[in-house]
């Protein structure tokens, strides 16, 4: 008994000395267990095509979750991302359909989507900082506004495009993996560097940890908070591009539906504190993967889709409980 305990503590302290963040251990372990269980539970799971599909599915919310990580670390929350995705998607389709030259249309559409996403994020950010309204309230309102506008502009109908190139983005492959997966990975790397290795990332953590200390340290707290919402908006823009081009269409009522919850869940499962101040991008990536794999496993096993929400909820609770244990 005592021997196993010393072994355990030795193992733990050994792991602590490894050059990885120990807070990532729990989600990483969960992911590994999930992979093993899934591959045992269904012979189709490790099928290349299935894996590639899961990864693609994960990418859409994963990209958004990366932006969400910044917002949450800085002490905020963004509930509007799902609706924003729909509205940005609608704008994107308008641009793609409005320009005759297919190459130009795609390029302008992508730039437009990112720009519009950034603007919507800025809108949220300005209300939170200058308007001094709680992020929860601001983004709850804008969630409603964005969805409503998306429905209004399209008369609630799906918009499609006949652009021959557009589908090559979201539907395309590179080195055997879907483009959205590569995009997700690239954005995660950039975001990780931004968060952990730049002054900006340090400032985001400082603001979320103790805004007062940050202010006394000469950090422009308002600007930092606002910028995290812009980052979230940009991520939504990128996600909208991936999703719309994969489907060649955007449905204003379905697109991004409940994405805000998936994104927040991924962030929380990844070990980022909802109270702000600390977190990690890789944790978020792992969190998104866990959610995606659970969904997929339940589908493969033929579990009722109505029960999938229950599993997701249970995993979120388990993750938070584990974090709570670790912190006390």
């Amino acid at each position: 008994m005592s021997e196993s305990r010393t072994f355990g503590s030795q193992l733990l302290s050994g792991l602590r000395r490894l050059p990885i963040d120990t807070s990532l251990l729990a989600p990483l372990l969960a992911l590994l267990i999930l992979l093993v269980v899934s591959s045992l539970a269904s012979e189709f799971f490790l099928n290349t095509r299935n894996i590639s599909n899961v990864l693609r599915q994960v990418s859409y919310t994963g990209i958004i979750a990366i932006g969400m990580t910044f917002v949450i670390i800085a002490g905020g929350i963004d509930l509007s991302v799902g609706s924003m995705l729909a509205l940005v998607g609608v704008v994107l389709m308008y641009i793609v359909n409005a320009i005759a030259d297919p190459v130009q249309a795609v390029i302008m559409g992508m730039l437009g989507a990112v720009l519009v996403g950034a603007l919507f994020g800025l809108f949220n950010g300005i209300l939170v900082t200058k308007g001094r309204i709680a992020a929860f309230v601001v983004t709850l309102a804008s969630m409603s506004i964005f969805r409503s506008l998306a429905l209004y502009f399209t008369d609630a109908g799906e918009i499609t495009t006949r652009n021959p190139l557009f589908n090559n983005i979201g539907g395309g492959f590179f080195l055997g993996l879907p483009i959205p997966v590569w995009t997700f990975l690239a954005m995660a790397i950039v975001a990780h560097i931004l968060l952990m290795h730049t002054a900006y990332g340090r400032h985001v953590c400082a603001v979320g940890s103790n805004a007062q200390v940050a202010r006394y340290s000469g950090i422009r707290v308002q600007r930092v908070i606002m910028s995290t919402f812009v980052i979230a908006g940009v991520c939504v823009g990128v996600s909208a591009i991936m999703l719309a081009s994969r489907l060649n269409s955007v449905s204003p009522s379905d697109a991004g539906y409940f994405y805000e919850l998936d994104a927040i869940a991924a962030v929380v499962i990844g070990g980022t504190a909802l109270a702000g101040g600390r977190g990690s991008i890789w944790g978020t990536v792992i969190g998104a993967l866990i959610l995606g794999i659970i969904n997929n496993m339940l589908n493969l096993m033929g579990v009722s889709p109505y029960l999938q929400g229950l599993m997701k909820g249970a995993v979120i609770l388990a993750a938070v409980l584990l974090q709570y244990r670790r912190n006390t």
Binding site: C205, A206, S209, N210, Q212, V213, Y216, G277, R278
Partner: peptide, 13 residues
């Protein structure tokens, strides 16, 4: 600042 923990240091840094 006189308020070391509230205005001076970020305790989890």
């Amino acid at each position: 600042s006189e308020d070391r923990q509230g205005k001076g240091l970020i305790l989890n840094f």
